[in-house]
């Protein structure tokens, strides 16, 4: 189980020096299964993912993994402890090939068959990508799929997938859902705005208006959100 305890995160404006609070006193816990986080742009979803991965450090509060305080652990240590992330905006590299990136992710050398196993799960044919660089010559959707493939190749216990469906065509959505299903035994934390993905959730977290609401399958809010993912707190009250 992954717990966030009273997490606050602030940023300081370089010019004005003004401190802005992005997350305030957030306490949440994530259990095995599919946890989907949704909510409007700018509500702090990606920030929270980055805090969990250790990219950012909270101003206060703790991150606990199975009861152990891991707030002080760096990115590499968290990755080795089973945290795996797929970025909202995949990173591009000049010269690093798809094959190399997957090898770095899996920690072993890969032949074409291994690549095929890995890339076919995200709907790509290994032969077409093996020597391609992970750079701007790949399309947005291709980059997104390769990003997801690196997460799958790495494996882990806690998967942080930030809008994995963004830029992926509708025809491939079912493939994504299958991936999530296969990982259901782990702790999956998916940020998404998509109804089809919300429907796969075991639990939904709605980030909105400085508050986070949680809904399990069977809850009214769950039904509301999966019917109308664009709901936010204001109009939930009106429903």
């Amino acid at each position: 189980m992954l717990e966030l305890k009273n997490i606050s995160y602030t940023v300081q404006d370089e010019d004005t020096g003004r401190i802005q609070t992005i997350l305030q006193d957030v306490s949440l816990s994530f259990t095995n299964g599919i946890n989907v986080i949704t909510g409007p742009n700018g509500s702090g979803k990606s920030t929270m993912i980055k805090l969990i991965m250790g990219f950012e450090k909270p101003a206060s509060g703790k991150v606990l993994l199975d009861g152990e305080d891991i707030t002080g652990l760096g990115v590499t240590e968290r990755a080795r402890r089973g945290f795996t992330i797929a970025f909202q905006q995949p990173v591009r590299f000049k010269g690093i090939t798809v094959k190399k990136l997957l090898e770095l992710a899996s920690g072993r050398s890969m032949n074409t068959d291994d690549m095929c196993d890995c890339l076919s799960s995200v709907g790509l044919c290994a032969r077409n990508y093996i020597d391609r660089a992970v750079d701007g010559t790949l399309s947005g959707g291709e980059l997104k799929r390769i990003e997801l493939a690196t997460a799958i190749a790495k494996g882990g216990e806690v998967f942080l997938l930030d809008e994995p469906e963004a830029g992926i065509d509708l025809w491939s959505f079912e493939g994504l859902v299958q991936i999530f299903d296969r990982l259901r035994g782990k702790t999956l934390i998916i940020v998404s705005h998509q109804q089809r993905i919300l429907e796969t959730a075991d639990r939904i977290f709605l980030f909105d208006s400085d508050k986070i609401s949680e809904a399990d399958r069977g809850d009214d809010l769950y039904a509301l959100l999966t019917r109308r993912p664009a709901l936010c707190r204001r109009n939930i009250k009106e429903q």
Binding site: M53, V91, K94, G95, I96, L104, T150
Partner: peptide
Amino acid sequence: AGEQLLKLMSLGLTEQEAEDAVIKGFLN
């Protein structure tokens, strides 16, 4: 780029290993 290092570190590489991998790819 910092995000390149973070991406590779999130795959389990140390910062030094990440740096080396970026350079090796770049010069490949």
